[in-house]
Write a protein that binds this DNA or RNA. Structure first.
Lengths: 240, 240
DNA sequence: TAAATAGTGTCTTTAAGACATTATCGC
DNA sequence: GCGATAATGTCTTAAAGACACTATTTA
């Protein structure tokens, strides 16, 4: 297979292509999984890859990520956050191809398995992966776990109204650790991200759980107070 | 000026070029500044721009950022962290040119003014800036301020041995807020990033200040404890 | 000894961690 | 009533914020 090359109209070597690669994560059976597609053609045929692809000159890289994700998996309309750009000219055997990666957390049920060849893999038990996608997935997982408590990134995975135990199990699946139930509740309540509705769940054994909802379903940050030294209040005088 | 274009060996449009653009920040006179160079040629002649430039096919984007920074400003050997990639095909009037930005915090004294045309500008009082560099600078400033207390990113700006008031004034210049002196001291000591040397400063009015040093001068994170709910200890049983 | 600067101590409030206790369901 | 599940209360520790006070220098 010949190496893909490009030259621009000024006579300089140009990158052969850009790719946009979405890292789509979802909790499944209590563990964090990533969505991969099997490469059916060389190079790296048979390996599993992120569902990304080449960028056109009339779209934003994020749009490319969205489009490729839909084409390859049927999943669409997810909120993507830019993750990292991998620019080593030797990272792809096909040529100088730079990858811009994006991150999303979705509900695994959004994927209609059977309709595509895409599959979920636990992030800590990956198959043989193409290119440098292993590192990309690791970067994505780390970013997601870092943001979990500082944003409402988990919002999309919970129903409109949810219970604390439900939210806790979700957070546990994403972070990979177990939380103490009452402290979890206190923390999530104090985060300012959620609000209690007056209602409770019915028809299940055990004490009925109260229902909560997210204050803001669009991407938002937790207003939790800063952990850096207090700035001095207006009017006060700093001593030196 | 004709638009720069590129086609790859498979016949597809390719990006005309990649640029790597360093956002070099430094505290100066108590305010955060950014290093810019004046564009001497079209497009956007006369505007001020980040000291970046086109990437070659035999270097990593970070190396490009380093090289361009040195060529344009004489500044070299700084620690660069990838910031964001700007991929809108219309962001640059010359053509489809994608920019990968990098962030560094340095000592303003490293720049030999007069030897270059590069100049420092306060980040909150910029001149007319080229392309989308205003947004890039804003993103860089935000990232720096977010990292200040979670890393030793400010290390490079302090001498080998420094005093608490010195460190405090530095942190204040970067963050743009004023800290209460004794709380600042406690916070920085507890961060684990610094260690007291036994010595004190001499020859200045006032009580002599004690000298500290950073435990680690290479990029590092503060080991401050997590602010997310405690994971349950091994051996304990989670109640549901 | 006064002015200037740096450092210490400490009181109060808030958040975090651990865990015992109480509440409310289906059966 | 019993098992199951959810929610509340609270005791303890640690961190953060505010600020009074003490210490050590130069001029």
């Amino acid at each position: 297979m010949p190496r893909l090359t490009a030259v621009n109209s000024a006579g300089y070597n140009a990158p052969a292509a850009l790719t946009a690669d979405p890292v789509i994560l979802a909790p499944l059976s209590g563990r964090l999984h990533v969505l991969l597609v099997r490469r059916e053609e060389p190079p790296q045929q048979g390996r599993w890859a992120l569902p990304g692809g080449f960028m056109n000159d009339d779209e934003l890289p994020e749009q490319t990520a969205q489009r490729k994700l839909t084409e390859k998996t049927g999943v669409g309309g997810v909120y993507l956050e830019q993750l990292h750009t991998y620019g080593d000219p030797n990272r792809d055997p096909r040529g100088w191809i730079v990858s811009i990666s994006y991150l999303a957390l979705i509900d695994a049920a959004v994927l209609h398995e059977g309709a595509t060849t895409a599959r979920w893999f636990p992030v800590d038990d990956l198959p043989e992966v193409a290119f440098d996608h292993g590192a990309v997935i690791a970067d994505g997982t780390e970013r997601l776990r870092g943001k979990l408590w500082y944003s409402n990134i988990a919002v999309g995975l919970l129903p409109e109204r949810f219970t604390m135990p439900q939210a806790r199990r979700l957070y546990e699946a994403i972070s990979g650790v177990t939380y103490e139930a009452s402290n979890f509740r206190r923390e999530l309540e104090q985060s300012g991200l959620v609000r209690g509705t007056g209602e409770v769940v019915k028809g299940v054994p055990g004490r009925p759980a109260m229902l909560y909802e997210f204050v803001e379903r669009r991407p938002a940050w937790s207003p939790r107070r800063s952990r850096t030294p207090a700035a001095i209040r207006a009017g006060a005088v700093a001593r030196s």
